[in-house]
Design a protein around this nucleic acid. Structure first.
Length: 579
RNA sequence: CGGGAUGUAGCGCAGUUUGGUAGCGCACCUCGCUUGGGACGAGGGGGUCGCACGUUCGAAUCGUGUCAUCCCGACCA
């Protein structure tokens, strides 16, 4: 490709609306252009990168035994009603009507469609197992798209779905996919950590996410991990053992009684006022899960993990209640307390979920729905709670708590989720009546798994992982081109001739090469080469009179002076060895 | 959906307070000069000032409304 014809416009400055590195770099270097919020044009350089990522994914999926197909982007409402997700998927599902007023949606994921395909085509146990995948655009109407390609509304995803006769088959395929994923991300130049996670709207029991670890804002997930064993989990799923703490208040309270605690609206104020550790306070939080109030009880030094709470409540939407909603709830129950004094006592009819660690608390302090008062020296039995209180893990893990597997302290870091794998079981096959016949002619629902990789997000994550102040440093496996040849002065006949000769030879050898034939000063070409992120740069300058060119490696900054022939040989060798 | 901010040329911005011919830098076109880290000079093209309504002799500027975009909090590849 001649640079003069390459469709790219680099910018002198970062666009003002870009926040994270990958967005800034990709926009400034002319890879992407925003069309509307969360929706991007992939310009020629970007499209080359995306195709490379796709091809790596394709090769590894095929190698793992999966088969590629392509499903429609537009899907009918009826299919989503079959799985039951039409009513639960929420506003991320972009819904619309066609000209006949039939209700349709844009595919945010394809479990329904693939299950409908499978049930038509997979009738016998002899046909199983099968793993089908596609690489396609998805649309999720995110509440707040941001960070460029990292959280777009329209994005490219590889989604695979496996069908097995039983759990054992699924387990095997799950491991198979986990291995394939590891290879895929390695080939894309990304270090990933496979962590346990919540399975969210996709559903199912077990799931893992592949995280690119980062210390920047681009990592939207908190990942807890252990240095002494292999435990690691997304914060929405992480569990821990707690280090010892004061949970029995017998040294502080010798009887159970209501006392005045004026103006103690926060845990901090309350523990200071009573001069007790906050581990002795039972905190009550009001959440709204699927429009209904839920009380969450937890030791006051700990925070609630909302996803866990939502799952425990069996909901699909959760948020903390507003003070107006709390006031309304108090009125409804005949109380007159403000936040800070809310408690579970007398809240019959409201769903109450307590963190399991609450069971260990004795002689603690708790709100009793009376402003400026608390009950001290209390035990659960004093609260007359309804019998259906759930005790389960709803606690947000904090760094320093202990690993659930080996008991050593946990660490926290941020991660970009580039892929995930789910064990779906029969979540879709059952309601959609997708069954096969076994040896005895008996029908069973398929046992399914699903496996996603964000193609566009993976490319963006690669930029987050490989850049410097001058621009992108693509791993060669996914770089848009392998090398740029820069003749310093295109009016210099020898320079230009040498550059063109190398260009032809590299092209012939299958090296993806750009010749910067623009009539620009060298500085401009160097700046653009760094920004765009060509893994290698060959500069043909004055030293060509001595038969030498400069050979520069973008990733390391290493510069060598070699003959054009050597440079060409090097490059051909390197490209041959790209995995 | 709450809270904050911004909409003026492809990009980055000034002008709005105090209404009066729409500007600057980069990018783009032409010519000259220059050629190893975003040179320089001269000339040029490009904008219904987000949109609508209103106030006014006159609106980028004032008012009302609306839309869009971005940032901070709950979702997910």
């Amino acid at each position: 490709m001649k640079m003069s014809k390459l469709f790219v416009q680099t910018l002198r400055e970062f666009p003002s609306d870009a926040e994270v590195i990958s967005h800034k770099m990709l926009a400034r270097a002319g890879y992407i252009r925003k069309l509307t919020s969360g929706v991007y044009n992939y310009l020629p350089l970007m499209w080359r990168v995306l195709k490379k990522v796709e091809n790596i994914v394709r090769e590894e999926m095929d190698r793992a035994g999966a088969q590629e197909l392509l499903m429609p982007f537009v899907q009918p409402k009826e299919l989503w009603e079959e799985s039951g997700r039409w009513d639960v998927y929420g506003k991320e599902l972009m819904r619309m009507k066609d000209r006949h007023d039939r209700i349709m949606c844009l595919g945010p994921t394809h479990e329904e469609v693939i299950t409908s395909i499978a049930r038509d085509g997979l009738k016998s146990y002899k046909q199983l197992p099968v793993n089908l995948y596609q690489i396609q655009s998805k649309f999720r109407d995110e509440v707040r798209p941001r960070y460029g390609l990292l959280r777009g509304r329209e994005f490219i995803m590889k989604d695979a779905y496996s069908f097995d006769i039983d759990e054992a088959g699924l387990d095997k395929e799950y491991e198979n996919m986990a291995r394939a994923y590891k290879r895929i991300f390695e080939r894309c130049g990304l270090d990933t950590k496979m962590v346990q996670s919540d399975s969210g709207a996709i559903g199912g029991s077990v799931s893992h996410e592949f995280m690119v670890i980062t210390d920047t804002d681009a990592g939207e997930n908190d990942v807890f991990y252990c240095n002494d064993c292999d435990y690691s989990a997304n914060s929405n799923h992480a569990i821990s053992k707690l280090p010892p703490a004061v949970v029995d208040g017998k040294d502080y309270f010798n009887e159970t009684k209501v006392i005045d605690t004026p103006n103690t609206h926060s845990i901090e104020e309350l523990s200071k006022f009573l001069n007790i550790p906050d581990t002795l306070i039972l905190k009550t939080l009001v959440y709204i899960v699927d429009k209904k109030p839920v009380l969450a009880l937890i030791r006051a030094d700990k925070a609630v993990e909302e996803t866990k709470l939502m799952n425990a409540a069996g909901g699909i939407d959760i948020r903390i209640a507003s003070s107006a909603e709390i006031a309304e709830l108090m009125t409804e129950k005949g109380f007159d307390a403000v936040p800070g004094f809310i408690g579970p006592k007398g809240m019959d009819g409201i769903k109450i979920i307590a963190d399991e660690t609450v069971k260990d608390m004795k002689n603690f302090v708790v709100g009793i729905n009376e402003t400026d008062k608390h009950l001290v020296g209390a035990n659960i039995s004093d609260l007359n709670l309804p019998s259906d209180v759930q005790y389960t893990d709803i606690r947000l893990v904090q760094a320093g708590e202990l690993c659930p597997q080996c008991g050593k302290p946990l660490f926290v870091t941020k991660g970009i989720e580039v892929g995930n794998i789910f064990k779906l079981g029969t979540k879709y096959s059952k309601p959609m009546n997708a069954v096969y016949l076994d040896k005895n002619g008996k029908s069973h629902p398929y046992v399914m798994g699903c496996y996603g990789i964000g193609i566009s997000r993976t490319a963006a994550a690669a930029v987050e992982a490989h850049y410097d102040e001058h621009g992108i440093k693509w791993p060669i496996s996914i770089a848009p081109y392998h090398v740029v040849i820069v003749p310093v002065n295109i009016q210099d006949e020898l320079q230009m001739k040498t550059a063109e000769k190398m260009y032809e030879e590299l092209l012939k050898a299958g090296v993806e090469v750009v010749l910067d034939d623009r009539d620009e000063r060298a500085g401009v070409k160097f700046k653009d080469a760094d920004l765009i992120g060509f893994p290698y740069r060959v500069t043909v300058g004055k030293t060509i009179t001595e038969g030498l060119v400069e050979y520069k490696t973008r990733a390391t900054g290493e510069v060598e002076t070699v003959t054009p022939e050597t440079a060409v040989e090097h490059l051909i060798e390197i490209v041959k060895n790209i995995k």
